[in-house]
Nucleic acid binder design. Structure first.
Lengths: 303, 303
DNA sequence: TTCCAAATCTTCCAAATCGTTCATCTCTGC
DNA sequence: GCAGAGATGAACGATTTGGAAGATTTGGAA
């Protein structure tokens, strides 16, 4: 499947979503003759892309979600080849610095029911890692990686607007990346995933002093602290401050979650309130279970 | 009806309810040409969100129910009862890490007709500077500054969604903060302001190697390069690379704009294509004039 | 192949929107 | 105060839209 041309036949549903109209309307327009179509043997309407474009230009219709017309996103009923080329497609879009396609792709997938954690672990982080590998070979790679970060920040922002609002009484989660770690993206993703999992999240971003984070978590009555460790660091001090952090948080029964490429190297041993996660999905699993527990506890408290 | 919140097409009824006006009036405004619209194949009016925003700013209409426009809740737009000074209010919200209030405040001021550059120069940068001063006295200040950055990033994203779409033929602007400068925010603001001024903007964010930026600008046919210098640096190398950048860009007739707290200290002398700006407003003024010039040139080219 | 879930079909209906007209309201100038 | 101009909002029958119900088709998996 040629990812960039998308497919040449659209279903009424696809055209309807691309135009921000209803399936019923598209069917009526087709039946009235405004859009010329082909039919499958069984009578289902199939709209040639060129015909869709002719119609769009004819009535000057605004296209709400261009990616559904195949300019970026794979058609949704092409499940066999989808997973294979998803990463490829996002990677190509990153190379082209095409933020619209990336945002559109992620939003589409989210609306289709994918979780944020799956989207991050799969296509998005996949593409970003490949972009990151680039600047071994190509000096432009560094620029592209910078741009990919900005695009991803924007895309995560768009996705967050689609999340249902979080309960004001939801447990609080604080986090960031430790001092010396300049990567913003993983922590931002973690915040979004935690919000999806039922926490109120407060992300302090890259390069956050671990000691302050701990104090703040206690001060604000957080139930969870996350740290994303994506850059190597002086081993001794970070390991020590993580250990202290774990102990301090344990006193208040606050969970500490460590993730990121280098999280294993600095993680404190033998701490009961520390959890290591390898992926956003693991984070989501842990957080969802924990949020459910907190809710029960809240209910129990209020009884 | 499209239920998800990122809705980009409004019906006349929705806009009417959001403005507290009648459908009849909206229809009249549309038919008179005050609001540019699209039509469905059946002739029903569909109003692009950005066009609704443009109209609201144009006639300075109060928005009674912003949530119908997907804008979330805005602070009371009862303009007579504003007691706290704007700066004070934003600062307080930053202290409380209350991102919603800050986003709502900025969006509502934008709807009232303020320009992005004025909002950035005034309330937003004002509040951020005060937050920045905090950690002279209070160690929590550093955390709050981190959080203020994240909040501002999100707010700028929200504002950008409201800008009218940029013409595909608009001149291209590339920029970022130079190597060694970790501040993301000023460059992100500059990108938004340039977009408002009629450029297609590509922001490479903090810590971007100046040499690569220059090559990329030439490679992609940019008309403008911006650099926001918010952190002190080794004077010699940065000054040298800026000088080389200015010369390289001059050959292609690309303007270089330098801004940020420390821009004066590294700016090349005697370069005709280099402009120093002290504020986002100055950037906007320069960029708007330049974009107008580019447009004229485009028209002339096509004749 | 056979089977199943998801997508699409047709048909129907309530709600929204259309274009139009008309009464009401608000301002301005005298 | 009053006449006229212009804007507003309500009302009308005709048309369009969006969604639901139940039958059929599709694409992929056992």
């Amino acid at each position: 499947m040629n990812t960039f041309n998308g497919k040449s036949l659209l279903t009424p549903k696809e055209l309807a979503e691309a135009l921000g109209a209803s399936e019923s309307s598209v069917r009526r327009w087709v039946d009235r003759g405004d859009i010329r179509i082909a039919r499958t043997a069984g009578g289902h309407r199939r709209i040639p892309l060129t015909e869709a474009i002719r119609f769009i230009r004819l009535i000057n219709a605004p296209v709400v979600r261009p990616e559904l017309l195949g300019l970026g996103t794979l058609p949704s009923n092409d499940r066999s080849t989808r997973t294979l080329s998803e990463d490829e497609m996002l990677f190509e879009s990153m190379l082209a610095c095409d933020g619209d396609t990336i945002r559109g792709f992620l939003v589409s997938r989210y609306l289709e029911g994918q979780s944020l954690s799956a989207l991050f672990d799969g296509p998005l982080l996949g593409a970003i890692r490949r972009v990151g590998d680039l600047w071994q070979h190509d000096e432009r790679g560094l620029l592209i990686e910078h741009r990919a970060t900005e695009i991803s920040i924007e895309a995560i922002g768009s996705l967050r607007r689609l999340l249902p609002p979080v309960d004001e009484n939801a447990p609080l989660a604080l986090g960031g990346a430790p001092q010396g770690d300049p990567y913003q993206l993983p922590s931002m993703m973690a915040g979004a995933v935690l919000s999806e999992s039922g926490f109120r999240d407060v992300n302090f971003g890259a390069n956050t002093p671990v000691e302050l984070l701990g104090k703040e978590a206690i001060h604000r009555g957080a139930r969870l602290v996350w740290l994303s460790i994506s850059a190597p660091s002086e081993p001794k001090p970070l390991k020590a401050s993580l250990k202290k952090l774990a102990v301090d948080l344990a006193k208040e029964k606050i969970q500490l979650i460590l993730g990121g490429r280098y999280h294993g190297e600095y993680a404190p041993q033998h701490a009961t309130n520390v959890t290591l996660v390898q992926s956003m999905t693991e984070l989501a699993t842990f957080a969802t279970r924990m949020a459910r527990g907190q809710k029960k506890q809240k209910v129990k408290d209020s009884v």
